[in-house]
């Protein structure tokens, strides 16, 4: 009867959702414009902005490395949490598979991003 209340892990996932949603809201549109439209087309920014040397230098700089990691990881955790709860809304009630396909993929993406960023060196 008097079992101590188990601590919920919900605040962690909710926090990641909120942080990722805020980051995506503030920077998402401009990031997409820069990496997916402006630089590939040479519009406003030079095409050379994302050449190998420039991006390697960016990914090796501690601030650049941190920025790339935070953007990828938080975007993934934001999407995972929102999609997990939307699955409930369309009648798929949170089982292990739903968790694996949302939080599981976000966790995998986070680990892959960390590995790739370590591999680019410092």
């Amino acid at each position: 009867m008097n079992r101590p209340l188990k601590r919920s892990n919900a605040p962690i996932f909710w926090g990641l959702f909120g942080a990722g949603g805020m980051l995506a809201a503030l920077l998402g549109p401009m990031l997409i414009f820069i990496t997916g439209i402006a630089v590939p087309l040479g519009l406003l920014l030079p095409r050379s902005a994302m050449n190998y040397a420039a991006m390697l230098a960016f990914a090796r700089h501690p601030l650049g490395k941190g920025f790339i990691f935070i953007v990828i990881a938080l975007f993934l955790w934001h999407a995972a949490h929102r999609l997990f709860h939307s699955l409930h809304d369309i009648g798929i009630h949170g089982g292990t598979l739903a968790k694996l396909l949302t939080y599981g993929l976000a966790a995998a993406g986070t680990v892959i991003a960390a590995g790739a960023l370590l591999a680019t060196g410092f």
Partner: peptide, 22 residues
């Protein structure tokens, strides 16, 4: 709520980019 799919898609684009850079 569905915009989350697109946020995930863009994160995947960036993730592939970092892996290719490495």
């Amino acid at each position: 709520e569905g915009t989350a799919l697109f946020v995930a898609a863009y994160a995947l684009v960036l993730l592939i980019g970092v892996v290719r850079l490495a």
